[in-house]
Design a protein around this nucleic acid. Structure first.
Lengths: 126, 126
DNA sequence: CGGAATCCAGCGCGATACTG
DNA sequence: CAGTATCGCGCTGGATTCCG
């Protein structure tokens, strides 16, 4: 997308410090799972809860709230009975989702390889 | 990427379940930070500990061990006094690192935007 | 249905001290 | 320098209950 400009923060420590702060906002496992799952069409609360399998209602709520607060998703309440709440990715959220999908794709491709490594290791340290 | 044909793991639930299992291996924040930081030249333990700023020595050790076990990094011990241990990314680790760098880049680019959203939100809910 | 509130267990992780 | 071992707490997150 946008090419990242000229002068990145210089030293390794500075770089990392920045990286840490920035990633902190999105790096927890629930957030990643939810972002990936919301993308790209509107999803309802229940849908998400079923999709992100083991997530509890409490954690899903908290995660969605944070994502909304950060401008990554939009929460829409339809005044109806029963209530209907839908979540959509904002443009920002969508672009993040793209990057995360790359990581997911990587994980899918390398899953078996990793599994083999892991097995081999376990056999040596039983 | 690949247009997914007729019947892969079809349902959303199944898809997500797989995603979750796969991401579980790499989705915790320390792992991400360490992978990004090891890349791409050899790093020594102390170096990493200083780079990944707030990480404790214990957690760094555990994280590196898991990464090694998964075949993402290589640990090399030089028989010397004082001991010298270096960590390098394997080809797999390097390719993962690439994907993660994308996410990092995203975070850098969108940092300010997110900050603004967050502020705006906080002003409304003080 | 979508959520808030409480309560509570588990383990993630930091702090500290000891080895080779 | 590069670890391993132990302990203890704090927060994450699950289960349950109640509301609009």
């Amino acid at each position: 997308m946008e090419v990242t400009p000229p002068e990145p923060c210089a030293t390794t420590e500075e770089r990392e410090c920045g990286v840490r702060n920035r990633l902190g906002r999105i790096s927890d496992k629930w957030t990643v799972l939810v972002v990936v799952e919301v993308s790209p069409e509107p999803k309802r609360f229940r849908q998400l809860q079923r999709s992100v399998h083991a997530i509890s209602q409490r954690v899903l709520t908290l995660t969605l709230r944070r994502l909304e607060r950060d401008g990554l998703i939009t929460r829409t309440v339809a005044a109806a009975v029963p209530p209907q709440v839908t979540y959509v990715l904002t443009p920002e959220g969508l672009s993040l989702s793209g990057k995360l999908q790359c990581v997911v794709a990587w994980a899918v491709v390398h899953e078996k390889q990793i599994g083999r490594y892991r097995q081999a290791g376990d056999e040596q340290h039983p």
